[in-house]
Amino acid sequence: MTAPTIIPGAPGGTRTTGGARATLRRNFWRGVGRVLRRKPSRMLGVIILAVFAVMGAFGPLFYPAQLPRDNNALYAAPSLIHPFGTDFEGTDVLALVITGARYVLLTGLITAVIAIVLGTGVGLFAGFRRGRWDSLLMRITDMNLAIPGLPLLLVLSTVWKFTSAFEMGLVLGLLGWGGVARSVRAQTLSLRERGFIEAARGLGLSTKHIIGRELLPSMAPFIAMNMLIAVTGAVYAQVGLFFLGVLPFEANNWGVMLNLAVFGGGALTTTAALPYLLAPLLAILLLTLGIVLVVDAMDEIFNPRLREE
C-alpha cells in the first residue's frame, strides 16, 4: 500500500492483544531462567540465597524459643550432633547460626529496601526535574552522606535497644540512601537526554509514565545491583556493631556470636572456640558470595537483548 517495503513474514509472530501483558511476564521469567542457566555460578548464587531465605523465614520454627544447653559439652569440638561444635553454654552453634539468620537477613532486607526506595526516589526526582529541586535534594543528599554513621549509632544505642530488626534496618537504611541517590541521579541525567525520553515528552506522555515506565525499567539492573550490594553492606554494618559490643545483646545474632567467641571464648588465642567463631563468619561469607554471584546476572536479566539471546 504505502512504501514499497517487504518485511519478512513472521513465523509464529504472536498478535498482542488482551493477554499481551501475561505473555510478556511469562517471557520475562523464561528469560530469567535462561540467563541463570547460562553460567553455573549464577545458579549456585541463587541456591545459596534461597537457602538463606528459607533459613531466615523458617529456621527459628525448627528450634525452641530457648535453645537447649548442655553443660557437659561446653565448647565441644565439631561432631555429628554438633557440626560446628557448641558455644560457652553448650548450645549448638549451627542452631545459633540458623536462628540468628532471621534478624540479620531481615535487617539487611529492610535496610536495602529503605535505602533503595529513598535513594531512587530522590535521585530520579532530582535528575528528572533538575534546577532548583535538584540543588535542594542534592544538598540534603550531601548532608546524608556526611553523617558519621558509627558515632550516631553509638549515641542511638544508648536510647534505643534495637531489639527488632525493623528498628535496626530503619536506622541503617536512613543512613545509607545518599550514595544510591547520587548515582541514580547521575543515571537519570544521562538517560533523560536519550531520544526515547525526549520523544515521550514530545508526545505529551505524563511525567508519571515517563519516570515509571520509561526511566525506571532502563535503570532496573542498576537499581537491583545496588539493592543486593546494600544488603551486604547492611549485614556487615550490623554484625560489626554487635561484634564491637556497641549494641546490647538482646537478640540472637551472628555479630553477637562473633563477639562472644572472640572476647568470651578467646577464639583468637585458643582453638576450642574456633568453630564458634568460624561458623558465623562462614555464613556471612556465603551470603556475600551468593549475592555477588547473582549480581553478575542482573545486567542480562533486565536487558531484553541480553536476556533473549
Binding site: G195, L205, H209, R213, E214, P217
Partner: peptide
C-alpha cells in the same frame, strides 16, 4: 505536540526495554 521530531538515531529513540506494542500504546492510550 503537533510537531514531532524524528531522531537521527533510531537506536536511542526507542526504549530498549519496551516492545513496539508498548511503545505505540502509551501515546494512543492517552
Amino acid at each position: 505536540r503537533r510537531i514531532q521530531l524524528i531522531h537521527q538515531d533510531p537506536y536511542s529513540a526507542l526504549n530498549p526495554t519496551r516492545t513496539v506494542h508498548q511503545t505505540l500504546n502509551a501515546p494512543l492510550d492517552l
